[in-house]
């Protein structure tokens, strides 16, 4: 059972735990990234519609230029959203793929060992 005087190893452990940096913290981070990317894509569509409508109503070339810049911003947001969506989806997919490969490899080794033992 526990001793009131911590061992040197426990002191070292305490020091290491105190120095640990917490960089994650979210369960299923890819799900959040997918949601954010969909929201960003919808925002980009809204930006494009606004830019289109405003540019149609603008008589001044300078106003139209502003709308072109806004439309370009919308395109950039849409591209960022697509990249984020692909990254999150592929991360999820490849993680499952990796786990599957590990399990298949392990099962294959088990079958080989079993066959060797039978001989």
């Amino acid at each position: 059972m526990s001793d009131d005087t911590p061992s040197p190893r426990l002191n070292e452990f305490q020091r290491e735990v105190d120095e640990l940096r917490i960089t994650g913290g979210r369960a299923n981070p890819e799900r959040l990234a997918v949601t954010v990317s969909i929201v960003l894509f919808l925002a980009a569509v809204v930006i494009e519609i606004i830019a289109f409508l405003q540019s149609s109503n603008a008589d001044d070339l300078r106003d139209q230029t502003d709308m072109v810049i806004l439309a370009l911003l919308g395109v950039v947001v849409a591209m960022g959203a697509v990249a984020m969506f692909l990254r999150a989806s592929l991360t999820r997919w490849f993680r499952y793929w990796l786990v599957r490969l590990i399990y298949e490899n392990r099962a294959s080794t088990d079958r080989t060992v079993e066959a060797l033992n039978e001989d």
Binding site: F13, V17, L20, R21, I22
Partner: peptide
């Protein structure tokens, strides 16, 4: 596995979201 709620405390410090390899290295 990161919890969706609650607290993970190691040696008195809350470590929700710590990377598993960092925790393994610590002991």
């Amino acid at each position: 596995i990161h919890p969706t709620a609650g607290r993970l405390l190691i040696s008195g410090r809350e470590l929700n979201g710590v990377r598993p390899e960092a925790l393994a290295r610590a002991g």
